[in-house]
Design a protein around this nucleic acid. Structure first.
Lengths: 245, 245
DNA sequence: AGAATTCATTTGTCAGACATTTAAAAGTCT
DNA sequence: AGACTTTTAAATGTCTGACAAATGAATTCT
């Protein structure tokens, strides 16, 4: 682990990179303890504050965890799926909100990815996944539901569909795509009629998953995509005309 | 933006969270300047070092950038696609390497995701994407190629396929899945015969993309997935028997 | 032996200082 | 007046030294 004093980058960034590379390369293994801040400071020939800033950078990426007290210190973290989900969702959400990605583009990506899970889910889903999907469909039919709650239930439905594929890597990848859409979906007002249409498509998808018909589920997802895009378009148009008039 | 002094979490983590939430909520918009470190220290009633540690956490997530000098400071970063790629790849790579995800699981996820791009790519790919795919196929046929270079070319081929879908959100999502597989792929030795088989499948996929036949491309990807899994299995078996004998 | 206490180590936080960078502002020359 | 140079103020980057708080190990006491 060496740093280049001539480099223009911040020392703390260089140190963070050096340690990060060691972790990725496997030189530092999971649960291994890093040298104490004082030792690192000496090794890199910088002050303790600089080392601390480097460690905070790594902590922000869930690469290490720290523990106080004797025999405490910084330990290489096993990146857990929940941690990875969290980062994936944060990144995806910001990416969408900051780069004025169109609703259509985000929607297309989301449903394309979901369709990649559908055949696997139709084959492997447990009774539990199916029960979750049915329960969320039931919830979506409740009259008093707010738009936000409807969206949240929608996310839960799709999550169960994705998790049914029983591939944690897929679930992790999809978490970002599905959840990051939520702020965009929340801009839509769901009328009683549009909810009915969505529930009908959800039911069709759940039926296909239950029957083990992956391609049917894909077709249902495609219809849901088309309907969602159309719905967003009409809501936006209505909003625009109201503002103009 | 408030922090809870009673909370057990580190102050710098709390402050980072407060600022992060403000960014996600849109209270702080892109390119907006945060108060100076000294001002933030006063606002949160902590020392400047604590504020700095919080800011480094945010910088590690590419949420802010800092600039020195008068009229410098910390600015809300527009999360660019390259930044997002980078984080996605780091996270995915570590997730795979630290959670002993099986080769089959990772492979299944990767090809399932790629199949979701194939129909779009068949429809929209430019001549440029196609030329890249052909060029990489050509490179893969060169005799002197090392296994690592072969893998890298493989990644470039699949990237072109994915980028052909012309959906930046999909490209971003797939970057992680494809690149994170590379360390696993690098464990495989590619014999002349296996390279030949892979090149044949790549050619078939490229032909399908060129012809606008998305389902053909999917079929090619499925065959490639099966072949890759089989190849990995035989390589691993050979390695195990050599160690045993 | 078990409980309480002390102790050493390590991270978390603070305060103050100086170095470095940077762009605006002021000054100077043509 | 305009172009170039110098000054200056503000901000981040780094260092030093100190103390607080946590924590597990070692020690002491009952």
């Amino acid at each position: 682990m060496k740093i280049d004093p001539k480099s223009s980058a911040d020392l703390s960034a260089q140190i963070a990179k050096a340690i990060r590379d060691s972790i990725i390369a496997g030189d530092l293994i999971v649960d291994e303890r890093l040298p104490s801040e004082a030792e690192l400071a000496e090794q890199f020939d910088v002050s303790r504050s600089t080392v601390r800033e480097a460690l905070k950078r790594l902590a922000a990426q869930s690469l290490i965890r720290t523990q106080r007290g004797a025999f405490g210190g910084a330990f290489v973290n096993r990146l857990s799926y929940p941690d990875a989900y969290g980062q994936q969702i944060t990144t995806s959400t910001l990416l969408l909100s900051m780069n004025d990605v169109s609703f259509d583009t985000a929607c297309e990506a989301r449903y394309a990815l979901e369709r990649s899970c559908a055949p696997l889910s139709a084959e492997r889903r447990t009774a539990d996944h199916l029960a979750t999907m049915r329960a969320e469909i039931f919830r979506q039919q409740q009259p008093g539901l707010t738009d936000e709650a409807f969206c949240a239930s929608d996310v839960a439905f799709h999550r169960a569909l994705v998790d049914g594929a029983d591939n944690p890597v897929l679930s992790y990848q999809l978490a970002g795509a599905v959840e990051a859409m939520q702020p965009l979906m929340n801009m839509i007002t769901f009328t009683a009629r549009s909810r009915e249409a969505i529930v009908a498509l959800h039911t069709r998808i759940a039926d296909a998953i239950e029957a083990g018909e992956g391609s049917d589920a894909c077709e249902g997802l495609s219809q849901l995509e088309r309907y969602t895009v159309e719905l967003a378009r009409s809501v936006m148009a209505k909003r625009a005309s109201r503002e103009a008039g």
